[in-house]
Simulated assay, not measured.
Amino acid sequence: MMMQLLIRSEKDGILCPLPQYPLYSASIALHGGSFVPYFLDEEIGWGLEVDELKKQVDEARSKGITVRALVVINPGNPTGQWLFDTFYFHKVLAEENQKKIVEFCKNEGLVLLADEVYQENIYVEDKQFHSFKKIARSMGYTDDDLPLVSFQSVSKGYYGECGKRGGYMEVTGFNADVREQIYKVASVNLCSNISGQILSSLIMNPPKVGDESYESFMVERDGIISSLARRAKALEEAFNSLEGITCNKAEGAMYLFPRLHLPQKAIGAAQAAGAAPDAYYALRLLQATGIVVVPGSGFGQAPGTYHFRCTILPQEDKIPAIISRFKEFHEKFMDEFRDVSRDEAPTGTTIESGGD
């Protein structure tokens, strides 16, 4: 709906992260707009730098594209990172970096599209979710100052009800005439089914202190999040223990996005098979183990790098067996393509089991 509202022609562009959840690039293409990418920096934990945003906006404008909005996914999909972490190089606090993003959108006249559907999935003790609306209000901005759309979904979070569709967006900072058009677009569509509407209501209004169900709710909620954190850590450590794979820490969401440093022989074999190297790896993994991962080439990645996305969603008691099968495959794969004559080090990689 927001893409339909914002995009008038191919001369309208939307800033989106790379790697990105492909829904964005697909929606932009569907509505005839231009995808304007900005790269997350893997070297600093998939961090977002305002300088990169400014660079991409200026480049798009030089091509005659009017950049209309900025998409931010926090925590991230497919990378699983807490997008505004304390950067290793610049030591910018999360809230301070978010303020820079808000200021950037204000100065550049952009709509801020805040994909915050993983806000409950936080796996690091010293991090706390802050919505972009909260950050904007803390800076003194009102509805008159910044057009902001926040997204939430019953498919994500600790509830993860992927099969039951429901969710909402909160639209602030748009004038009455524009809001009226948004409601018209919404009215054309059929509503979610009843279970999706009930779930959306429950997520928006969870049990509160004093409610009869509050204690049992918190026990279940905290148990799910703790289990997801343990699964993420187990997979992260397993990936980093293997030759040819590096993996940033999973701080949130439901995913890891390991990088594959593939031998040149493996890259050559993929090219001979007419496949992207990470897609070739993922298909071999599926055939050998039954484990499904999604190639990084499906999400966008820096040129010359290869990744895969895996979820952390398999049941916790199945994770050790998954890790064992994965390790056995990966070690055989690396041995198969190792170039012994050149004494080659690997060069250039999610357990995907449910979720979106």
Rank of each mutant, 00 (worst) to 15 (best):
P206W: 05
R221K: 15
R231Q: 06
G223F: 09
K233G: 00
E212N: 11
E215C: 15
P207E: 05
R221G: 03
F217M: 11
L228D: 01
E220A: 11
I224H: 08
M218L: 13
K233W: 00
K208T: 12
D211L: 08
A234T: 03
S213D: 14
K208A: 12
G223T: 03
K208N: 06
K208P: 07
F217S: 07
S216D: 12
I225W: 01
D211K: 04
M218A: 12
V219E: 12
Y214A: 12
L235E: 01
V219D: 12
A232S: 03
S216E: 15
A229S: 13
A232C: 08
S227M: 12
L235G: 02
R230H: 07
A232N: 01
P207V: 12
L228P: 00
K233N: 00
V209C: 09
P206R: 04
F217W: 09
A232D: 01
S216R: 14
F217Q: 05
I225T: 07
S227L: 05
E220H: 15
V219Y: 11
I225A: 06
P206M: 07
M218S: 15
D222F: 13
I224S: 07
E212K: 12
S213H: 13
M218Y: 04
G210I: 02
A232P: 00
I224V: 10
A232H: 00
Y214C: 10
S213A: 14
R230L: 06
V209T: 08
R231N: 10
E212Y: 11
K233D: 00
R221M: 11
E212Q: 13
I225L: 09
S216N: 14
V209G: 05
E212M: 13
L235K: 04
R231P: 03
G223D: 01
R231I: 14
F217E: 05
S227C: 10
S226G: 09
A229Q: 05
D222N: 14
E220W: 14
G210A: 03
E212I: 08
I224R: 14
A229V: 00
E220M: 13
V209S: 11
D222V: 06
A234M: 11
P206Y: 08
G210C: 02
A234Q: 04
G210D: 03
S227H: 03
K208M: 12
M218W: 06
S216K: 10
A229T: 00
G210K: 02
D222P: 12
A234Y: 02
G210T: 02
F217K: 05
K233P: 00
F217A: 09
R231G: 05
R231Y: 06
L228N: 03
P206H: 07
D222Q: 15
R221S: 09
L235S: 03
A234H: 01
G210F: 02
D222Y: 12
S213L: 15
S226I: 01
R230N: 07
E215L: 10
R221T: 06
A229F: 01
M218P: 11
K208F: 10
E212R: 15
M218E: 15
E220Y: 15
E220S: 09
G210H: 02
E220L: 13
L228S: 04
Y214N: 05
A234P: 03
G223M: 05
A229H: 04
L228F: 03
